[in-house]
Computed example of a mutant assay.
Amino acid sequence: MGAASRTKGAAFEREIAGVLFDELGIRFERDLEQYRQGQRGDLIPDDPAFPFVIECKRRKAGIGCDQAWQKQAAQAALAAGKIPAVVFRFDRQQARVSVPMRAFCEAWPVDVWAECTIAGFCFIAREVMAERAGAWAPNDYRDQRDRIVGKEAEA
């Protein structure tokens, strides 16, 4: 990776950290160990209850989240015991976030991911954090999942 690419990536990580702070009130800092060690996310939250490991990707062009990015985030999340998330943006486009459907309900297959806006991702993060804190019972989307992908989707 060249210096210009690292600079672009670092700037994007700082930008996303700022947006997440504005939306969630949680401070994020860049994980500088990510370059020395594998299986680490790009941003470290100051709240240990934050349920996601975030991988940030900034590219010139593309369509949707690359499966290699999802795999990288999944490996880092597995090591941390959290949920993977990929925040990505292509030039002249809005940032998007890709998360596994299991962030919503454990019954979804592990390889099914969805994309949303950063605001949508922050909503999901707040919901997961509230559920884990015992603020309310979790939603069970099995019926909805079964209508969409069928009962054979049990994993």
Results as ranks from 00 to 15, higher is better:
residue 101 M to R: 03
residue 101 M to F: 09
residue 23 E to Q: 12
residue 103 A to P: 04
residue 97 V to K: 02
residue 28 F to R: 02
residue 128 V to S: 04
residue 74 A to L: 11
residue 76 A to M: 10
residue 109 P to R: 05
residue 65 C to I: 12
residue 149 V to G: 13
residue 12 F to H: 00
residue 20 L to I: 00
residue 78 L to E: 12
residue 45 P to C: 10
residue 111 D to Q: 15
residue 101 M to E: 02
residue 14 R to W: 05
residue 8 K to S: 11
residue 125 A to V: 12
residue 91 D to W: 02
residue 141 Y to R: 12
residue 6 R to L: 14
residue 29 E to S: 14
residue 62 G to L: 09
residue 30 R to E: 10
residue 58 R to Q: 11
residue 59 R to F: 03
residue 108 W to Y: 14
residue 78 L to D: 10
residue 56 C to T: 11
residue 65 C to P: 05
residue 126 R to A: 12
residue 81 G to A: 01
residue 83 I to L: 15
residue 51 P to D: 00
residue 14 R to A: 13
residue 123 F to G: 11
residue 92 R to G: 00
residue 97 V to N: 03
residue 133 A to D: 00
residue 21 F to H: 14
residue 36 R to E: 10
residue 105 C to F: 04
residue 76 A to V: 10
residue 140 D to T: 01
residue 110 V to F: 15
residue 123 F to T: 14
residue 36 R to F: 09
residue 55 E to V: 05
residue 6 R to W: 11
residue 24 L to K: 05
residue 92 R to V: 00
residue 40 R to T: 12
residue 66 D to Q: 14
residue 50 F to E: 06
residue 148 I to N: 03
residue 101 M to K: 02
residue 138 P to H: 08
residue 36 R to V: 06
residue 34 Q to S: 15
residue 148 I to M: 07
residue 63 I to K: 14
residue 27 R to L: 08
residue 122 C to K: 01
residue 61 A to H: 08
residue 94 Q to P: 08
residue 4 A to I: 10
residue 138 P to T: 11
residue 16 I to A: 04
residue 144 Q to E: 08
residue 14 R to Y: 06
residue 150 G to P: 07
residue 140 D to L: 02
residue 15 E to S: 08
residue 135 A to Q: 09
residue 61 A to T: 13
residue 1 M to V: 03
residue 136 W to Q: 14
residue 111 D to A: 15
residue 115 E to P: 06
residue 93 Q to V: 05
residue 140 D to W: 06
residue 37 Q to A: 09
residue 155 A to G: 15
residue 62 G to A: 11
residue 15 E to R: 11
residue 47 D to W: 00
residue 97 V to D: 03
residue 118 I to K: 00
residue 155 A to E: 15
residue 141 Y to T: 13
residue 63 I to G: 04
residue 148 I to E: 08
residue 9 G to M: 07
residue 130 A to I: 03
residue 130 A to R: 04
residue 114 A to P: 07
residue 92 R to I: 00
residue 84 P to C: 11
residue 138 P to F: 04
residue 36 R to M: 07
residue 27 R to E: 04
residue 140 D to G: 01
residue 143 D to N: 04
residue 90 F to S: 10
residue 45 P to Y: 07
residue 135 A to T: 00
residue 45 P to M: 10
residue 116 C to A: 08
residue 97 V to L: 03
residue 37 Q to G: 02
residue 123 F to W: 15
residue 71 K to D: 11
residue 81 G to Y: 00
residue 13 E to I: 03
residue 81 G to W: 00
residue 46 D to F: 13
residue 90 F to Y: 15
residue 124 I to V: 15
residue 109 P to M: 02
